[in-house]
Design a protein around this nucleic acid. Structure first.
Length: 161
DNA sequence: GCCAACGTTGGC
DNA sequence: GCCAACGTTGGC
C-alpha cells in the first residue's frame, strides 16, 4: 500500500465537498501535468492520500481519502465545454487520466503547511521542496506517520486549552 | 497583488 | 536540441 498527497483549492473542491458527495466519492479529474498524471497512474486501489488544501488562508493537510478506482481516461479532457479541455486529448486517443477518491475522514485539526515546515522529520518531504508545484505526489510511510502524529499533538494542545 | 519557480511552447 | 517567452502554481 502506498501513500500520496493530493492538492485542491478548497474554494473549488474541499474535503467537505467530497464528504457531501453521493457515496462520499468523486472523480479526481482536471489534472493537466504529466508528472502528476504519472503518479496517478501508479496509484492502486486501497492506497491512501492526504487531501491538501492549497491557495487559501490556511494551507495544509485537511483530511484522508482512499483511492477506490485506479487511473483511467479523464473525459473532461476532450469536452470543449470543460474548463480543463485539452484539444490534444480525444476519446480515441486520451491524454489525461483521473482516479476516484472516497472520503475517509477529516483530520481532527488541519495540520498547517507552516507546522509541516517546522517538523525536522519532514525535512525531505516532496511537498516542502523548494519550488514544488506538483498537485499529486507520493508520501513516504514515515512522513505519513509523522503527520498523523502532528494531528494528535495539535488535538492534545486544543483539548488542554 | 507580488513574485519565485517551474512547465510548456515554439522559433531557430 | 537549445532557450527565450509565456503561462501557471501557490505561498505570502
Amino acid at each position: 500500500m502506498n501513500y500520496w498527497l493530493m492538492k485542491s483549492e478548497p474554494d473549488v473542491f474541499s474535503i467537505e465537498h467530497l464528504q457531501a458527495r453521493p457515496r462520499r466519492t468523486e472523480h479526481w479529474d482536471g489534472v493537466r501535468n504529466f508528472q502528476a498524471r504519472n503518479f496517478m497512474r501508479a496509484m492502486k486501489k486501497g492506497d491512501l492520500a492526504f487531501f491538501y488544501h492549497s491557495s487559501c488562508p490556511e494551507p495544509g493537510v485537511a483530511g484522508i481519502v482512499e483511492i477506490v478506482h485506479e487511473a483511467r481516461p479523464d473525459p473532461s479532457s476532450w469536452d470543449p465545454k470543460s474548463a480543463y479541455h485539452d484539444p490534444k486529448s480525444r476519446p480515441d486517443r486520451p491524454l489525461w487520466d483521473m482516479v476516484d477518491v472516497r472520503y475517509q475522514r477529516k483530520l481532527k485539526r488541519l495540520v498547517p503547511l507552516a507546522a509541516l515546515r517546522e517538523n525536522p522529520a519532514l525535512k525531505h518531504m516532496r511537498l516542502l521542496a523548494r519550488g514544488n508545484r506538483l498537485s499529486i505526489m507520493p508520501v513516504a510511510a514515515a512522513e505519513w506517520k509523522a503527520i498523523l502524529k502532528m494531528e494528535k499533538q495539535l488535538e492534545k494542545l486544543r483539548s488542554r486549552s
